[in-house]
Amino acid sequence: MNMLASYLTLAAVLFCIGLYGVIVKRNAIIVLLSIELMLNAVNLNLVAFSKYGVQPSLTGQLFSLFTMTVAAAEAAVGVAILVAIYRARASVNVDEFDELRR
């Protein structure tokens, strides 16, 4: 078993923990943080492949940089939306946001 598989397994574990957090946690901030965790698991994959992949190159690292940038943008917008919703509803519980039904 080479190192790559170990990294991928770790990434899978982190991804699934993040996913569980997204599905189960009620607090919107934790949901957002869980999403960040999932993104980070993906980053770990990218970086691992950049070292141990079929053709090691810097592209994987570059890609993870872009992912982080997008994650930052996403976090900023997410928190902004959260604050706006909180202002309207005085709650940060995801299960009380059922605007999608309408």
Partner: peptide, 23 residues
């Protein structure tokens, strides 16, 4: 460990420094 020092740096800066603080 994966020899991606720059990514590690950005990770600390961005995730720990920015996103967590933002949250």
């Amino acid at each position: 460990v994966l020899e991606a020092e720059f990514v590690a740096f950005v990770q600390v800066l961005l995730y720990v420094g920015a996103i967590t603080i933002l949250m």
